[in-house]
Each structure stands twice: as C-alpha cells, then as structure tokens.
C-alpha cells in the first residue's frame, strides 16, 4: 500500500473521529511522524470537521456560560497555582489503606527500629560481660591453683608442727661435721630426723643442704647393725617442711648421701650428713 492509498483508506477519518482501535492509532501516529502527506491529510480533515461543526453550531442556554466559568474558577481556587489538579487529587486516591492498618504499619516500623537499637545495645553489653566473665574465670582458676598450693604447704607445716610437738617424737640431728674423716663435701650441712618411737615412722626436715646438681638426688639411709637400709628419697621442693619418709623399726645411725636420680640400692655417692640415734 502506498501513501496515497493509505491516506484514502478511511484511516484518517477513523483516527480523527476516534473510531480507530489501539493498533490502528499507534500505526497512524507513526505514519504521521514519518510522512508529511499523512499529516497534511489529517489536518485537512480536522479543519473541515471543525469548520463544519462551527457552521452547524447550536448556542447553549445563556446561563450555562456563567455556571461553567464560575465552576472552573472554583477549581482554580482549590488548585495550587501552576500544578495540575490531577496531582492534587492523588493524596485522596492513595487513602485506599484503612487508617488502622496504617497505624499498625507505622507502629510496626517504630517497634522494628527500636528492637534493632536494643539488639545492638544488648549485643555490646553481652560482648563486654562475656569478656569480663572470661577474665573472672581465669582469675578464679589461678586462685584455686594458688589455694591448692597453699593448702598443701599448710598441711605440710601442720604436720611439721604436729611432729615437733609430738612427745613421742625422737629428734635426731644430722650434720656435716659428724661425717667420718671430714668426708662431707659441705660440712655446714644440717638435717633433722623426727622418729616416731611408737609408729616407727621417720620424718625428715632439711635445714641446710646444697642444691643437688641435675641428675642427682639426696637419699636417706638408716644404718641398722652396720648395714645401710634405704629410708627414701628427698624432694627438695618441700623446703624446710617435715616430709614423711619410710618406716624404719630399728636403726643406730641416719645418713644422707648424694646418689643418682631415683636412688641406689646401696650408697655409692658421697655422704653429706650423719647423725647418731
């Protein structure tokens, strides 16, 4: 179809009179934009229609003019200058949602924001207290450890005092000078045996002994009828407290020698102290 055929197909009149359907309208508007002839044909028909309408006009009742123009100035009074009345009407149209729902929605948003703030606040608090709890737990563990150490020490000292005040205890002083032929490597050494005469338990208190070199350990001997009997190993960690050794029913002498770590069946090392029962 060429342009002239298109123009004389009745589409121009159909469009102008508002009888064309959606697709025809869109197509016609495109044709108008592209072809001046189509546009000219449309304008020509519009003009002839307009002239015909004006030629066959019917005067409306005179009072209508006043009514209509007054109504329009009323519209302009309510309208904000320059802005379209359509825009003005929008807030009314939008109120489709009931006010209660709006209040509920607004309250929900406020609650949500409040909840978020509280969450943040309490999370920070939680972190802070969590740290403090860990610190306290560590301190408590330390205290318990210290307490255990102190308890052990205290028990040891209690035993020591109990031993010293026990009337059944025989006290045997062992010193470096008593070692025959000045054989003690440390003549100032001193240790005390407390021997329960009833239970025959032997307790040892170190008063002064040089710190043994590594791999060596002091060993207590009871000399029974000239035969040395193992009476236990010394643990230097106990300090000056009284430490329970082996049960010795009978002995004439007590002596301490420096032996290999863990002790020897018979004394091999040098004797540090000796004491007579």
């Amino acid at each position: 179809m060429n342009i002239q055929e298109y123009i004389s197909s009745g589409i121009v009149e159909s469009y102008v009179l508002g009888l064309a359907d959606e697709a025809e309208r869109a197509n016609f508007e495109q044709m108008c934009a592209r072809h001046a002839e189509v546009r000219a044909a449309r304008e020509a028909f519009e003009l002839s229609l307009e002239q015909h309408a004006i030629a066959s006009q019917v005067a409306p009742p005179a009072h209508l003019r006043q009514n209509i123009l007054q109504q329009l100035s009323g519209e302009s009074a309510t309208a904000v200058t320059g802005s379209a009345p359509v825009v003005q009407m929008q807030p009314i149209r939008r109120s489709g949602v009931p006010m209660t729902i709006r209040y509920v929605a607004a309250a929900s948003i406020i609650l949500l924001v409040g909840s978020a703030i509280l969450n943040f606040y309490y999370f920070n608090k939680y972190k802070e207290f969590s740290q403090r709890y860990d610190q306290l737990l560590a301190q408590q563990t330390d205290l318990v450890k210290n307490n255990t150490v102190l308890q052990t020490k205290l028990t040891n000292y209690e035993h020591t005092i109990a031993g010293l005040t026990n009337p059944n205890m025989a006290v045997i002083k062992m010193d470096g000078n008593s070692v025959p032929a000045n054989g003690s490597p440390a003549p100032a050494s001193l240790a005390t045996i407390l021997w329960d005469t009833q239970s025959k338990d032997v307790y040892l208190m170190v008063n002064n002994l040089p710190k043994p070199e590594s791999g060596k350990q002091y060993q207590l001997w009871a000399i029974v009828d000239n035969q040395p009997v193992d009476a236990g190993m010394l643990d230097m960690a106990h300090g000056h407290a009284m430490v329970k050794m082996k049960n010795i029913p009978r002995a004439q002498l007590f002596a301490i020698t420096l032996e290999q770590q863990g002790g020897s069946p018979t004394p091999k090392g040098k004797m540090y102290v000796l004491g007579k029962v």
């Binding site: 309408a53 003019r65 209509i68």
Partner: peptide, 8 residues
C-alpha cells in the same frame, strides 16, 4: 467553541 461542542 461552546456552541460547536454543544451541537456535538
């Protein structure tokens, strides 16, 4: 234009 529109 009122009269022309009134006619329509």
């Amino acid at each position: 234009y009122a009269a022309a529109l009134y006619s329509i």
